Simulated assay, not measured.
Amino acid sequence: MGLLCESEGWHPEPELVWLDSKGVHLSAGPPETHRDLDGFYTVKRHVIVQETDTNHFTCRVQQSRINEKMETEIHLPIVGSKPVVSIEGHREGGMGLLCESEGWHPEPELVWLDSKGVNLSAGPPETHRDFKGFYRVKQHVIVQETDTTALPAESNRAGSMRRWRQRFTSLVSCLITQPHGEWPSWCYAVWEPSL
């Protein structure tokens, strides 16, 4: 992932460095420095980072001659695994589905959406934190048959699952998000019954 740090209004010319969570300098692109008409400097620098255990990075702009520095800490969310949607079988007049994903940080939110993007009523999410501090989330939902999506069932003996798939909503999405913070992220899985 590429990050950019930019700071302006410095005099004399500053130095910009990128640091990892342990304070180790990261190999970054060359700094770009510009001086305005008033003699103040703007400096910016790109860095390419790989996902780490913490995903904490620091942009430090410093002017050693006047012992001045400014630091900005960046915490990138860790996007977990692609959600997996599985069929649990017939439940309460509908079809039970389960969505699971792991490896998230910070704690994500899970939402079920129907084919029109409307939130489906689902049970409470189950969230667990592993020994490394990453979150695993799962949630159950029951998709109900609706009159508007009902299709005639075939007359052959293909089984109740095939007939159910022909009668129920054709598209359900499991959306996992990290909506809070500077770097929103999301991941989704779509469950579409095969006809």
Rank of each mutant, 00 (worst) to 15 (best):
W104T: 01
P193D: 12
M70T: 07
T169W: 06
N156V: 06
P124F: 08
G181F: 05
P14L: 03
W183E: 03
L195G: 14
P179E: 06
R136Y: 10
D147N: 09
E8L: 01
N67D: 09
S21E: 11
G39K: 10
D114C: 09
H25R: 11
G9S: 01
T52S: 15
E107G: 01
H75G: 02
V118E: 10
S155C: 02
K116T: 05
I48F: 11
G96L: 12
K116A: 06
A28T: 00
K69D: 12
P125C: 09
T58H: 11
C187A: 14
V190W: 02
S86E: 14
C5L: 10
H25E: 11
W18N: 07
S64Y: 03
Q62A: 15
G94T: 06
A153M: 05
E68M: 13
S81N: 14
V43S: 08
S115K: 12
R162N: 04
L113F: 09
V141D: 12
V79K: 15
P152F: 02
R163D: 11
D20Q: 00
S7Q: 09
W10Y: 11
V172A: 00
A150L: 08
R162Y: 10
F134E: 02
K132G: 00
G181M: 07
L26C: 04
P31S: 12
S155N: 12
R163E: 04
V24I: 13
T58V: 12
E145A: 07
D147F: 05
A189V: 01
D53L: 12
S101M: 03
S173T: 14
L3P: 02
R45E: 13
T149H: 09
R162L: 06
D114E: 05
H128A: 08
E68R: 11
Y188C: 11
N156G: 11
E88G: 15
F134L: 15
G103I: 10
